[in-house]
Amino acid sequence: MDILSILVNVAVSFLSTFGYCIIFNIPKRQLVFCGLLGIVSWMIYYTMTYFSLSEVLATFAATCAIVLLSRVLSKLRKCPVTIFIIPGIIPIIPGSLLYYTAYNFFTGDMDACGRYGFLTIKIIFAIVFAIIVVFAIPMKRKKKSKT
């Protein structure tokens, strides 16, 4: 992992998340934070898979980090938590695996199709469990000042 590829990955993960946020009309003042979340999730995933840890584990770790950060940010920036989770998760959603599954399905390589298909399903389950687990962690709620 050289410094150039790290820089390129940071840049493109920021830009892709940023663009995705604009498509879904995320408020302007949150855009930079969303981009930063994209960097966090992609760099966790990228580093863990680079050191040959499994994709499923990497996805789980990245999603946990994202959901945790999103919850903190949504408290700090007084904003629905969904606004931060969606852009944070989008780099690690298995779009590439979906393509390889479909490609091998349609070109008739059923072995590869099954392999990619099951990996896709496993990764989606990793995302699902990470979201559920981190949302189950209780967080202190700020008491509303009664006026």
């Binding site: 990955n9 493109v12 830009l15 892709s16 663009g19 995705y20 946020c21 498509i23 992609w42 779009g95």
Partner: peptide, 22 residues
């Protein structure tokens, strides 16, 4: 609603960056 041209540019940005990312 957001201007379509902004959404189109955002899509171009996002898909280009995703392509390099993968």
């Amino acid at each position: 609603p957001m201007k379509p041209i902004i959404r189109l540019l955002a899509t171009a940005l996002a898909s280009g960056a995703f392509c390099i990312m993968f």
